[in-house]
């Protein structure tokens, strides 16, 4: 047997071990779960060390002489102060850098994406001389969905009340379609695993 075939058999055993949880909580499942956690950590450690840390230190810093990169190296290392009780505040400097970078990027780069979304909502009500039903419906659903999430004003009567009610039903259609799609996604995963067992390992299915 080839390594690939042995792999399919091992994979099938792993799938059955994991799925044993569906029938009864047992040590078999926990064995599989902890094996997975251990393997993920081991792989993460070796991959990051070999493919990222090594080239960073050996190539970028030592070979190319980008010594200024030692500053972010030090900033990154400060995060390990988290493990020393009196020095936890130092680790927050690294976190501060990440948070600032993330927040700055969100504010700097996201607006064009969302503005396009806003502009696209305002489609003409008359298109090619005909009433654009789809465009009007789209506009109404976006506005009423936003209205539904407006919590700072009372919506006891008038446009706000009926608008948010319409928005609620429109959102139910959206959630329904999300549920339909998610159902399909999860079944695909089960199908994928059954293919590993019955196709790749047992060769019972073409």
């Amino acid at each position: 047997m080839t390594a690939e075939q042995w792999g399919a058999i091992a994979g099938s055993i792993c799938i059955i071990m994991a799925w044993s949880y569906l029938f009864k909580e047992s040590d078999v499942y926990y064995f599989a779960e902890h094996l997975f956690v251990g393997l993920t950590v081991a792989r993460g450690l070796t991959y990051t060390f070999e493919n990222q840390l090594k080239p960073l230190i050996l190539k970028d810093i030592a070979e190319k002489g980008q010594w200024s990169l030692l500053i972010p190296v030090v900033i990154g290392l400060l995060i390990y102060c988290w493990f020393f009780k009196g020095l936890r505040w130092v680790a927050r400097i690294t976190m501060g850098f990440w948070i600032g970078y993330g927040a700055g990027y969100t504010l700097a780069f996201s607006p064009p994406v969302y503005l396009k979304q806003v502009f696209d909502t305002f489609t003409p009500f008359i298109k090619d001389g005909r009433f654009n039903f789809e465009g009007v419906l789209y506009f109404l659903v976006v506005i009423t969905a936003l209205m539904y999430f407006l919590f700072t004003v009372k919506k006891e009567s008038g446009v706000l009340k009926y608008g948010s009610m319409f928005g609620r039903y429109a959102l139910m259609v959206a959630f329904g379609s999300a549920y339909g799609s998610i159902t399909m996604a999860y079944l695909s995963l089960v199908i994928g695993k059954l293919q590993v067992i019955f196709k790749d390992a047992l060769h019972l299915v073409k």
């Binding site: 396009k116 979304q117 696209d120 999300a178 799609s181 399909m184 996604a185 999860y186 695909s188 994928g192």
Partner: peptide, 26 residues
């Protein structure tokens, strides 16, 4: 995209920010 998030990205296809998108196994 996985179908778990497919319904959530339709608006970007409509606005032309995505050039179509495949939905899961289907």
């Amino acid at each position: 995209a996985s179908l778990t998030m497919y319904s959530g990205l339709q608006q970007y296809i409509r606005s032309g920010q995505l050039q179509g998108f495949l939905g899961g196994l289907r």
